[in-house]
Every structure is written in C-alpha cells, then in structure tokens.
Design a protein around this nucleic acid. Structure first.
Length: 238
RNA sequence: CAUGCACUAGCA
C-alpha cells in the first residue's frame, strides 16, 4: 500500500487527477493515507462536492478520518462557504482531539473567515497554546482573516504580535496579506517598506505570487506608474 | 506514503 500511495501522490503532484483516480480505484488496499491524498487532491482542485463524496465512501469502508483528512474537508467546506458542514467538522474535531493539531486549527480559522464569521475565527486563534505559536500558517490565516474581513488594524496588531514572539519569520502569505491591508487603508508608504523586505528576501521570480498584491497596492493608491512598472516586472513576456 | 495559510485576469 505504501508503494501504491507513493505512486498516487506522484500522479497528484503532476496534476494527473484522472490517472490518480484510476489508480485509486484499482488499488488492492486503501488506508487512511490513500484517502487523505485523494480527498486533498480534490479540494485543491476545487472539486469540493467530490471531496465530500469520497469522504462518505471512506466512512463506508469503515475508515476514520484523521487530522490530515480533516484539514482537507474543512478546506472544502470553506470553499463551499458551508458554515453548517464546517461546524459539524469543528464539533467532531473537538470531540476527537484533532482540533489540537496546527493544521486543523488553521483550517478552522480559514473556514470561519471565509464564511465571514471573524469572531469565531478569532476565538480559535486565542485558544492556541504557546507551543503552537511557532506555526506560521496559523498566524497567516488569522492575519488574512482579519484583513479580508475588513479589520486591518487588528491585522497590523497581529502581525506585530507575531514578530514580537520572535518564534517565526514572515512568509510570502504573511507579506501578501500585509500588502493587501496597506492597500485597503491607503498606506502606500508602509506598503513600500514591505515591498523592500520582499526584495531583500526573494528574487522577482520567487516573489511572483506577491506581484498581484503589489500591483493592487500601487494601483489603489493612485500611483499608476508604479503599478505598471510592477506589472511589467512580474509578467515580463506579456 | 497524505493535511492546513496569501495572491490567482476582464465584465457583472
């Protein structure tokens, strides 16, 4: 089964979902890892309903989801904006103890955030025990949650709290959220500082996924010349 | 052997 799972995950990495499903169907044995792989592949590609279908089939085979499966299922409910399913999963993860895993927490925060329940997202974040404060996706998710739900000042506060712990370094998603926040409050000069930090750490190529946020920042703040310059740097061929 | 975080065109 390990061998089959490895092959399965390599299909998924190559984006060959058809082949992955085909292999999955004819595997002699499927364990929780196999199911988690195929379910996460479906949520990542936006097939949320299919992910839940597979989840049902998994249960029918008598297998119990674990923290990996749960993360993907929460992401699927988040993608559907289905707060009801999300809450069911939340309840179940508390009862089983999986809620204590960093990945599950992050998914819960994102799920509540996408469903516009910022308060619930914050409640989850506040329960994070100290030893999980070094998990950067957890910070990123709660910062993004506040920024995208309109509470930028809380986003700035959290960012600074994060730096104060000294436990984690910002990553690309962290900076992207900060750029979005500065864009939405029109603080272009602070945005430039972030831009500088990004340039210190990544090449234009490596930082390409933050290009959109940079274009947005400069465009929003009326500096079309810089926005155009960013656009050309990030998408040189177009 | 598998999970979770930002960005991801235009119009509306």
């Amino acid at each position: 089964t390990f061998t089959y799972n490895s092959l399965l995950s390599s299909y998924i990495k190559q984006g060959k979902l058809e082949d992955a499903h085909h292999l999955f169907d004819k595997m002699p044995e499927r364990n929780t890892v196999s199911w988690s792989s195929i379910i996460s592949a479906n949520t990542r590609s936006g097939n949320f309903f299919h992910a839940f279908d597979m989840f049902e089939e998994m249960m029918e085979e008598g297998l119990i989801p674990n923290e990996y499966t749960l993360g993907s299922l929460l992401k699927a409910s988040s993608g559907l904006g289905d707060i009801w399913v999300g809450k069911q999963l939340h309840g179940w993860s508390i009862r089983t103890g999986f809620a204590s895993h960093a990945g599950v927490r992050t998914s819960l925060i994102t799920m509540y955030s996408n469903c516009k329940f910022l308060d619930d997202a914050m409640r989850i974040f506040c329960d994070v025990p100290p030893h999980l404060q070094e998990d950067i996706p957890t910070w990123n998710s709660i910062i993004a949650a506040n920024v995208s739900n309109g509470d930028c000042s809380e986003g700035f506060q959290l960012f600074s709290d994060m730096l104060c712990t000294g436990l984690v370094r910002p990553t690309k998603p962290t900076y992207a959220s900060m750029l979005n926040a500065y864009a939405s409050v029109g603080a272009i000069e602070y945005g430039r500082i972030i831009h500088g930090k990004i340039r210190q750490r990544w090449t234009v190529q490596q930082g390409a996924t933050m290009g959109n946020s940079l274009v947005k920042l400069y465009a929003k703040c009326g500096n079309l010349k810089d926005a155009n310059r960013m656009f050309e740097m990030v998408f040189p061929k177009n």
